[in-house]
């Protein structure tokens, strides 16, 4: 028989008695855990367990077709539009109707004072070519400079005399941008 596998109690190490006693008392020591801490740990553990149990359901939801993030906004917009169109309210004026009204107002204004506007333009048309442009200003400026005959109705600004100020008035009118040019 092999002697190496036989028990030899006299060769086993022996710990000091004090160490053995201290090690035995270590497990008897009571560690105090406050009830609140204990409860919170338990609650956290319960939540963790509940989430774990819900995961399969969420995975099923994730398998549904993708919905864009703006979909709720679009749905809300459609709903609002539907409400806007269906609910009764005050009458709305379309832009074309407003434009027509504006044009008719201008027509009325022009009909009220056709002679004054035409007179003003005809007075500025110094060279009588049917349009007011820089040549009218040039013609008047040349006449003033040369001391040639000047008509009374060339007093464009109405200050009682025909001078450079009237030339400038005609020039400014010639280069003026109309309402349609300012858009």
């Amino acid at each position: 028989m092999d002697k190496r596998n036989q028990s030899q109690p006299e060769q086993e190490p022996k710990a000091p008695a004090k160490l053995v006693t201290d090690l035995k008392d270590l497990h008897k020591e009571h560690i105090f855990v406050p009830p609140k801490v204990d409860q919170s740990i338990l609650n956290a553990a319960r939540e963790q367990l509940e989430e774990t149990s819900r995961e399969p359901a969420e995975q099923e939801t994730a398998g549904q077709p993708w919905i864009p993030q703006w979909a709720p906004w679009a749905a809300a917009a459609c709903l609002m539009l539907l409400l806007f169109l269906t609910l009764p309210g005050e009458k709305h004026t379309s832009p074309s109707a407003l434009a027509k009204a504006s044009v008719s107002a201008k027509e009325v204004a022009l009909k009220q004072k056709p002679s004054s506007l035409a007179t003003m333009i005809s007075r500025k048309d110094i060279n009588k070519d049917g349009q007011v442009d820089i040549l009218d200003a040039f013609t008047l400026a040349s006449r003033i400079k040369a001391g040639a005959a000047i008509e009374e109705n060339w007093d464009i600004n109405g200050d009682g005399q025909v001078n450079q100020a009237d030339v400038e008035e005609i020039s400014a009118f010639a280069v003026k941008l109309g309402p349609e040019d300012n858009s």
């Binding site: 200003a137 040039f138 400079k145 941008l177």
Partner: peptide
């Protein structure tokens, strides 16, 4: 703006 009428004369 994007448009202009310019004019000048010299006597």
């Amino acid at each position: 703006t994007e448009q202009v009428i310019i004019a000048a004369y010299n006597t």
